[in-house]
């Protein structure tokens, strides 16, 4: 019994490593075949609609609520130390450095990532990808690469929109609901948020998340077994794997980027 479970574990690990290797080759193939995605930019634009524009509502609404909660909770804590004037700084830094890229990434993974996996998985199951191959059109260049670049371009935009909405939400709650001074809110914020350190780093993070999430989503779809259970399993795996990857990468990137502040 024990022997069986160890065998199993070993088997699954080998499968996992093999899969990662396969995924890496897939990623390289995607990059190499990206020419079509740019020469026929219309394909990429179309995918930006499906990944980016259709995620707007959830991003904007979530951003607003997160910002509002930050405003409330932030005020509650800061006022114990008499530092209510730092509310603007708190809201802005939390969003721009962390919450914007990470939460936008998680939302993107569950909305756009799962949709991409399901779409590619179904195309594979209904032999559309095979048909394309037989018609001498490379499915990676025509179907996969445009979706990849659409995701990479959309993510930083969505993260910026999330942060902007969040700051607006924090402003609504802080200034209009609670009564923090408007001038103090914005001026404190402006003096503590640095463009290079905070905003640019946030953009870099969201771009990295975009690459990660989209690659995982595309790979899971492309590799899914061509059955109903196969596709649904792949969709679930996309959301779980890319969410974990985003959180892990966030730690790595944060440690790397914000180390120098001390």
């Amino acid at each position: 019994m024990l022997k069986r479970s160890i065998e199993n574990l070993g088997n699954r690990t080998i499968q996992g490593v093999w899969r990662i290797g396969f995924a890496a080759r897939f990623f390289l193939a995607m990059l190499l075949h990206s020419g079509t995605a740019f020469r026929r930019f219309g394909l990429t634009v179309r995918e930006m609609y499906f990944s980016g524009v259709l995620s707007l509502i959830i991003i904007l609404v979530s951003g607003l609520f997160v910002g509002m909660v930050l405003g409330l909770q932030g005020y509650e804590t800061l006022q114990r130390f008499g530092s209510e004037s730092a509310l603007g700084t708190l809201v802005a830094l939390s969003l721009v450095r962390e919450l914007g890229p990470v939460l936008a990434g998680l939302l993107f993974a569950s909305r756009a990532g799962s949709a991409i996996t399901a779409e590619i998985g179904l195309m594979k199951a209904t032999e559309q990808l095979s048909a394309m191959e037989m018609m001498a059109v490379d499915p990676i260049a025509r179907v996969v690469a445009p979706r990849f670049w659409a995701g990479v371009i959309s993510m930083p935009l969505l993260a910026a929109l999330f942060s902007a909405m969040g700051i607006f939400g924090g402003y609504l709650v802080g200034v209009h609901l609670i009564g923090v001074d408007e001038g103090t809110f914005w001026s404190q914020m402006k003096s503590s948020v640095d463009f290079e350190q905070d905003i640019l780093n946030g953009v870099i993070k969201s771009a990295v998340f975009g690459v990660t999430i989209t690659t995982i989503a595309l790979f899971e779809g492309y590799d899914a077994p061509p059955t109903a259970e196969g596709v649904s399993g792949a969709t679930t795996r996309t959301v779980v794997t890319s969410s974990l990857a985003v959180l892990a990468l966030d730690f790595v990137l944060t440690a790397f980027m914000f180390r120098g502040l001390n």
């Binding site: 902007a164 402006k190 905070d198």
Partner: peptide
């Protein structure tokens, strides 16, 4: 949104 963050929120 990026411009808003860069100009109104942050300082170069």
């Amino acid at each position: 949104a990026l411009l808003f963050l860069a100009l109104k929120v942050g300082s170069t």
